[in-house]
Write a protein that binds this DNA or RNA. Sequence first.
DNA 1: GCAGTTCCGACACAACTCCGTCACCGCTCC
DNA 2: GGAGCGGTGACGGAGTTGTGTCGGAACTGC
Lengths: 228, 228
Amino acid sequence: MSARILVIEDNADLAQGIAYNLKLEGYEVRITPDGRAGLDAAVRWAPDLILLDLMLPGLDGFEVLRALRTSGSRTPVIILSARAEEADKVRGFKLDADQYVTKPFGVLELLERVAALLRRAGHSATPREETLTFGDVRIDLARRTVAKSGQEVTLPPKAYELLLALVRRHGAVISRHDLLREVWGYGASVVSRTVDTHVAELRRKLEDDPAAPRHILTVWKIGYRLDS
Amino acid sequence: MSARILVIEDNADLAQGIAYNLKLEGYEVRITPDGRAGLDAAVRWAPDLILLDLMLPGLDGFEVLRALRTSGSRTPVIILSARAEEADKVRGFKLDADQYVTKPFGVLELLERVAALLRRAGHSATPREETLTFGDVRIDLARRTVAKSGQEVTLPPKAYELLLALVRRHGAVISRHDLLREVWGYGASVVSRTVDTHVAELRRKLEDDPAAPRHILTVWKIGYRLDS
DNA sequence: GCAGTTCCGACACAACTCCGTCACCGCTCC
DNA sequence: GGAGCGGTGACGGAGTTGTGTCGGAACTGC
């Protein structure tokens, strides 16, 4: 049984993007463009988790969350906010949001948090596995560690997420642009060449011979591809 | 056989949360939303332990407790009080209650007290183990003490609970936010950096070389992880 | 009051991110 | 098959961000 996720977000573009990725992960997704409809869906549809934008037309995110909580709902909520200001964060926490993600955020980061929350809420039957492997590399999602032939390798956050993005679609070619969107997030102001830097780091730490990679491959003019 | 716990609490939100965590620990849980139903269940269902809110509609917590005791019941009771003043009242009551916990409380604290009371009442068949260990550190849950290579170490309450939170999910990465919710409780207005302070204390007292921790590890940008 | 504890702000430091530069590689076109 | 050109790899360092540490203020229990 797949978990149901409600996305309350007025930016249709963004909402669609998120929904697309969630569906890829096997979740059931519904989108509402404003607070009132969202609150309604939260009650009627009884989702297992809610992604909530703060900046909404009409009823804003704070009000939605408060209404939800005072009505006794314990549904886990992840707040998506454009404003990174501390005041907002505090308000969000005091309202018992379970997570707080500021835009721009990477899809992967969001997916990870969703999985984590659902796992804790008892929906351990999420489609995601606990460990991933390719070649002699093993990724432990819970521990957030990577090991090459048993030897633990420390990867900084960005490199780790990039690796996950590659592994998630291993075998397929992924463009720098896609990687940027998945890891750095929609609207991140980063040059696409930056991806190369982090790929280089991955190769340095995970390939036997970084100069002649056997797993993290370059696809000329297109992007990268991860081979087992 | 698992112990039976009765939760008398009118805030459905809170009651569900408590019940969820108790069930996770393997207890059998029943909830009643008011004093009269609670008293009724206390007699008929014969729980091994009662969690009792003071602010109840109709028959309040004091009256429930008094009725219970005058009827000769010796069932252990933990009082959940909203304010510190109420805690004082309970004290003045000269302890017909076995414990009192003031809101907001951490889940861990509550679980600890529940386990302790049941243990004392002879229900040692709680699902939880009596001691936990990692590295050369041993935690004695019953005595609430911690020893490093046989040498007893004194940890203040918050540090102790933080340690438990880490040990309970040892191996996995836990975010500061999660730690806050588990140890400090819902709606606690504490900055997440405070976690760092207490982690530092744990390292100082439990690591051979606090500057190069081998068990209580930092996961950059995410949180902490306890390794054996 | 006193000792112990909790919490936060300030600062220094460490880790990480990202881009510029340059060299080199592979494709394309003649 | 060689020249030209755009794409990629390698490297270093400036800037940013997150964490460790410390001291002290506020609070609590005794």
